[in-house]
Design a protein around this nucleic acid. Structure first.
Lengths: 337, 337
DNA sequence: CTACATCACTGAACCGGGTAAGTGGGTGGA
DNA sequence: TCCACCCACTTACCCGGTTCAGTGATGTAG
């Protein structure tokens, strides 16, 4: 009925609770026979060490934190975060770390949550996403000496580890592919411009377009929602010199863009080619299925979790590039008519 | 540098740590002047009570758990879970409860996670989703006396609180609407048949169809993924007596179904009407936008969190019906040609 | 003027693990 | 034979809050 403690085990085994602690943690100080007996008793009565007591005596909380700072309607529909979370879990679960989640509205609130969590010793480290230029969270993490890994970049995060994928290389590949198909009026609908990875992508897009001698290129900023994706697409398509291909910074906006094109009577890919960034089941769900820049988001998350656990263990962690992004051609891209 | 404790505050205020505890928790036993002084010091040095110490001395862990038992690729794309999580957060955050998440593969693993979390005193209660008939988790929750609320139903959950929405009423409304438009060959692509709410919906669908005298009705089971949605739709559309309308148990399958229809050269809604269950931005993103059964998922989650907090406080919680489901007509439904 | 209640606090025990220091018995080497 | 040393434990204290049983000072009623 009452949840068992090591004292219960000690009593049943006829030893002190110190011995039980040594036995259960694989420490030296007990004989193999006693250890086995103690472990058997623990199993039998379904013992689980009280995490609070453990955390209190200097050990770890065995939990890491993640804050999500996007409106719920984007969090829900974008596969990105859930993919990431699944990846974390795979790694954290194996080490029996728990994941603590908080949805917030602003980066300032994220800072507050970090302070609170760390002050309460609720977590041993945090995973930081959606990093911005001069992100307010970085100095706080350093001040608190709170172990962390940043997903995204590369950018300036001081001593904090970073996991990033080669966004610049990916967008370069996408543009080259479209150019090879014969496109020369390529537009891009980007994510939130404040985010560091948006900036990296925009710069790489401008660079490759310039170096290939493309002039009618444009990046329209949006916010990852379908509504903004539609609006941006409409703006691009009603203009005089309408693009023959659009690259979107997420799958949701790409799907919205496809719907706008269809609504306007344009054929995809005949009149307009579409490339989505971050492939997801959504991309192969629609008709025509969308050509996309794919990466293994779960693996990305797993790697981030691994690095965070290293950082928590005091190991120095530097910048790590996660698995490659590659282009998955599908029905939404073709030579322009 | 070192995170401050109540002992630090006590020293600075020149009182005992007992007094500090009383002051910070609004307990009687200190004068207003002293209380204010202590609170000011706590603020100044950025004090946060160590959650482990608090949990250890009999109090709450101030955290609730949620396990998700679906493949990552569904979790990611379906807005449902993230909407629910946002709803939880709104309520939990206000009471400064944390949400601990675990993604698992089977209901048996969920049981294990519950046992471990509860044994470790990591959580004060759990939110249970995707309830099945004779769900293995129910007896365990009762055995452990772990506070819980079940989302979904209504079904037999013994003494455990339930939050449910009127799925039967909703599907009845959808069928009546389609019949009013002139449809008489209505099909349904359902979610995983083991889940309780799928069974509730299937029974309600069969009942209303029978009572309206519809005979060419069929429910094809699927698993919420786009692939299965496509497959089920294809099966329905190539048959001899093809349906003029299909109701899908989630948005993802509905979008997949739309793509299949388009791919087969059928016009939506001309040749086929489509109704999605659980409205989401995804439904208004595609072309034509999908008629859907809408409910406020976040509010649903918030209510569940509220009930769970009540259950944790030892208040008796019964079955609660969450906000209504209503039909949102959009471009994907029309009278059959 | 005493008896008693109330207030504002203090001191110490307690929660359940982790762990440094201590203890007694057995073994080995000189 | 004696000492040193190791093994297998036990003892006791620590972590940082909460809480209960005092305690001295003050107020109040009889």
């Amino acid at each position: 009925m009452k949840r068992p403690t090591i004292a219960d085990i000690a009593r049943r085994a006829g030893v002190s609770k110190g011995a039980v602690s040594y036995a259960l943690n694989g420490q030296p100080g007990v004989s193999e026979a006693t250890r086995k007996r103690i472990i058997a008793i623990a199993q039998e009565i379904g013992f689980n060490a009280n995490s609070a007591a453990r955390a209190l005596s200097g050990a770890r909380a065995r939990a890491v934190g993640l804050t999500l700072c996007r409106p719920a309607r984007i969090l829900g529909i974008e596969p990105w975060f859930m993919g990431l979370i699944s990846g974390f879990e795979a790694e954290l679960g194996a080490q029996s770390y728990a994941l603590t989640l908080q949805v917030v509205a602003t980066p300032e609130q994220e800072v507050e949550v970090y302070r609170r969590w760390w002050g309460e010793r609720r977590i041993d480290g945090v995973i930081v996403t959606d990093i911005r230029e001069n992100d307010v969270r970085i100095p706080v993490l350093q001040e608190l000496q709170l172990p962390a890994v940043v997903i995204g970049g590369p950018g300036d995060t001081g001593s904090i580890a970073q996991i990033w994928s080669d966004d610049a290389g990916a967008i370069t590949e996408a543009v080259r592919y479209l150019v090879a198909l014969g496109h020369d009026r390529i537009a891009r609908v980007s994510g939130v411009p404040d985010l560091l990875h948006t900036q990296v992508r925009t710069k790489a897009f401008d660079d490759i377009c310039a170096s290939l001698g493309l002039h009618n290129t444009i990046t329209v900023p949006a916010d990852y929602t379908g509504e903004e994706g539609s609006r941006a697409t409409r703006r691009l398509l009603i203009g005089g010199d309408r693009p023959s291909a659009i690259i979107y910074d997420n799958d949701v906006m790409a799907v919205a863009g496809l719907a706008v094109a269809q609504e306007m009577g344009l054929s995809v890919p005949g009149d307009l080619s579409i490339v989505a960034w971050d492939d997801s089941p959504l991309c192969s769900l629609v008709h025509p299925p969308l050509t996309a820049l794919s990466r293994d988001i779960s693996a990305y998350g797993a790697q981030a979790a691994r690095e965070l656990l290293n950082a928590i263990d005091g190991k120095r962690v530097g910048n790590v590039e996660a698995g490659r992004v590659h282009l998955t051609p599908r029905g939404s891209t073709a030579p322009p008519r």
